[in-house]
């Protein structure tokens, strides 16, 4: 479970995140939806422990990402918006490196990597160096790397950005499967249809604030719109930045 409480973060004069609070429970897919530049990525980087909040806390299964960073990170798998693979290592070596950094090794690690290669349908590229991989192939490797230690909490920053239709469908399947295993999934997107299709819990962020949060039904009810798209536009106050 990921819990965010009164999170603030500024970069110089730019107030990227202002007083954001929400909870992403286990066994549910929680979507962070918002226009570009709304503060989704910064929020995720704060949760992941890459950045330090100016105030407020983010906890993963109760571990504070600032004061108990290593415990929190042990329970979290992250797909960052830049995939950042090592181009001179093969796909398998990329995944293996992160697995070993999480304390896995030997047969157990290799078995886990094999499972991920099958789950993500990447047998063909597993032993190739990642230089020259397509975006879809890069995402697969990056996801495998994030999941190698079987984290209870999974955070995906724009996982379908740049993917073709087939890869996007496959990605959704993986996300649902992770949910069915009882994990906590937090993913961000600026694609409304995607969030509407996948998420049981939606947090709408605009201008560094939480504009609204709840299940799709709750959001429709609150705004009085039958259509979820109209509800979003109503909440954010503008169509700008949403697709």
């Amino acid at each position: 479970m990921i819990r965010v409480t009164n999170l603030h973060k500024s970069f110089g004069p730019v107030r990227a995140v202002q007083d954001i609070s929400f909870t992403a429970p286990d066994g549910l897919i929680t979507g962070l939806l918002g226009p570009n530049g709304a503060g989704k990525s910064t929020t995720m980087r704060l949760i992941a422990g890459a950045l330090e909040p100016d105030s407020g806390t983010a906890t993963i299964d109760g571990y504070d990402t600032r004061t108990q960073r290593l415990d929190a990170q042990q329970r979290l798998g992250v797909l960052t918006d830049s995939h950042g693979l090592y181009l001179r290592l093969t796909a398998r070596e990329n995944v293996r490196y992160f697995g070993r950094l999480h304390g896995l090794n030997g047969k157990e690690l290799e078995r886990r990597i094999d499972e991920l290669i099958e789950l993500l349908d990447m047998a063909e590229i597993a032993n190739r160096r990642t230089e020259g991989f397509s975006t879809g192939e890069q995402v697969k490797v990056a996801i495998a790397r994030a999941l190698v230690h079987q984290p209870q909490n999974v955070m995906l920053d724009e996982p379908t950005a740049g993917l073709d239709v087939m890869s996007t469908r496959a990605m959704r399947g993986v996300i649902r499967q992770l949910r069915d295993e009882g994990r906590c999934i937090l993913f961000s997107s600026h694609v409304m249809q995607e969030v509407a299709m996948l998420c049981e819990n939606i947090v709408i962020i605009a201008g560094g604030h939480v504009a609204a949060q709840g299940s799709p039904a709750e959001l429709r009810q609150r705004t009085g719109h039958e259509n979820l798209e109209d509800a979003f536009v109503d909440i954010i106050g503008t169509k700008e930045g949403l697709i």
Partner: peptide, 14 residues
């Protein structure tokens, strides 16, 4: 610059 530092530093290692 290759943006692989951030994923790397998200591993539970000081």
């Amino acid at each position: 610059e290759r943006k692989s530092l951030e994923p790397l530093l998200l591993n539970p290692v000081p």
